[in-house]
Computed example of a mutant assay.
Amino acid sequence: MHALSLPTWWIHITSVLEWILAILAVQAFGLRRGEGGWRWLALAMVPALVSAMAACTWHLFDNSEALKGLVVLQAGLTALGNGAMAMAAWNLLRRQRLSPEDEPS
């Protein structure tokens, strides 16, 4: 645990907790609005969460060379998560444009 200072650990841990709360908030928002597309956005946020957990795990073990694979996993999950969130956002936009309440009377 010597790789990071205590304030840096604080930021890492609170960022992971904040991301979990964001996923739950997105899910709750979608349920409240009755729009299923928000579930996809919440699901698309999970790879970024796992990516952050992989980074924290690597730092927890002092950036050990034996765990260098976690860095590759973290990078891959970040890319996957960013792509998934972009697709989920596009899906929300598409659903909004197809919404019958937006059609002129």
Rank of each mutant, 00 (worst) to 15 (best):
L43M: 08
V71R: 13
A52S: 10
A54D: 02
A66P: 03
V16D: 03
S105R: 15
S105H: 12
A44W: 10
G36K: 10
S51Y: 06
T57E: 06
R95A: 11
M53N: 05
A79H: 07
P7M: 13
L92V: 11
S15W: 04
R33P: 04
S5R: 14
D62V: 08
N63H: 10
L92K: 12
I23P: 02
A55W: 11
C56D: 00
L21V: 07
W40I: 08
S99I: 00
M45R: 01
N82M: 12
T57G: 01
W90P: 06
L43P: 05
V72Q: 07
C56V: 12
D62T: 08
Q74F: 08
M53S: 09
N91M: 15
V72H: 09
L24N: 05
A42V: 03
N63W: 10
E65T: 12
W19Q: 07
G30T: 06
S5W: 09
Q74S: 06
C56L: 12
E35D: 13
A75I: 11
L6T: 12
A75F: 15
A28H: 13
W58A: 02
R32L: 15
L60Q: 04
S5L: 11
L60P: 00
L70A: 05
A48S: 08
A75W: 09
T78P: 00
R97H: 06
A48Y: 02
H2G: 06
G36F: 06
A3W: 01
V46G: 00
C56P: 00
A25D: 04
A42T: 05
W38N: 00
L80S: 02
G30F: 03
P100V: 14
S99E: 10
S51C: 10
M87Q: 09
D102Y: 10
R39Y: 12
L67T: 12
D62Q: 06
L43T: 08
L4P: 01
L73T: 11
H2A: 13
N82H: 11
L93C: 06
L31W: 15
L43Y: 12
A86T: 15
T14P: 04
G76T: 07
F29Y: 13
M1I: 08
A55P: 02
M53K: 08
L93Y: 14
V72L: 09
E18G: 11
M45S: 05
W40M: 09
M1G: 01
M87H: 12
S5T: 15
R94N: 10
R94E: 06
W19M: 01
W58H: 01
N63Q: 14
V71S: 07
S51E: 09
A89W: 15
L31P: 05
Q74R: 15
L60K: 09
A66E: 11
A48H: 00
L4M: 09
G81A: 01
L67E: 06
